[in-house]
Design a protein around this nucleic acid. Sequence first.
DNA 1: TTCCAAATTTAGAATGATTATAAAATAAGA
DNA 2: TCTTATTTTATAATCATTCTAAATTTGGAA
Lengths: 151, 151
Amino acid sequence: MSTITTLTSALQQAGMRLTPQRTSICELLVDSDEHPTAAMIYETLKPRFASLSLATVYNTLDTLVSLGVVNVLGHAGDDKVHYDADTEPHVNLACLSCSKIVDIPSEHVTHLDAEITAASGYKLLGARVLYYGLCPACQKKQARQATMKRN
Amino acid sequence: MSTITTLTSALQQAGMRLTPQRTSICELLVDSDEHPTAAMIYETLKPRFASLSLATVYNTLDTLVSLGVVNVLGHAGDDKVHYDADTEPHVNLACLSCSKIVDIPSEHVTHLDAEITAASGYKLLGARVLYYGLCPACQKKQARQATMKRN
DNA sequence: TTCCAAATTTAGAATGATTATAAAATAAGA
DNA sequence: TCTTATTTTATAATCATTCTAAATTTGGAA
């Protein structure tokens, strides 16, 4: 599991300075289990840094992604780009109705790396496993609406 | 494996007309193993339909995606959105250097559906499994360049 | 065939996320 | 403190995608 230090020390080892903005972005990514978007990060931190710029958020995210400590999830039902500080093999499961994304540990995903490397000869650098569907709550909601229509 | 009929009949069953433009887009998606982007599809078909509009390409792709017969792959190394007519469980493997995307059949991926459904209670509607790394050719290229620098 | 209404395509404008730029602010070291 | 490189900021620019209204095409009915 990623801690704040995982992200901040990645930045430092890449020779970058640990500014308050960068540290806060890293904290937010690790603390939140909501797979935030760049805009969500910006809005959340704006009260703390009155002069915060979206460019800073994007720059920091890009750096973290290229350092391999953060993953990108796009097209997860809401057409927004989400960021995930958990780079351990796992399944991201997005609800197409309420747009929440949850993480699922998976026996099979943990074995995928070896299987793919053996089959392809590629040198693997990262992964994004995204499933989408309807969460239990939204399934009920849909069933309820269908019933109401019928009556 | 998807055939042209898989896509075209999906459109028809959704009550949509089979126009020449739509048919050609479906053909291209099925025939190509290059996971084309909207822009690539537009450029390829432009000679055949002088008046083709990008809006038509986007509309058709969106429809096919929402019908579940085409998948979307974003952030596959080249920051472009690719489309994949193969919706069977498999791994998409993207090379970060040459940006080609290949499909890998996988024993583990075929079992993921059942595992995720059991673990989450979600009703699954689709999936996108994207790994990225360096293909064998690009690994050699990188090794060669490292050698040249040393000398 | 001809006509009609609905669906579709088209061209171009609008949107909106992301990127680029240049100036101001900040941090680290001498 | 002074100096210099890095970083942040504000704003402009870019570009993929979506929207809109008009023109075209389609399939069915007469």
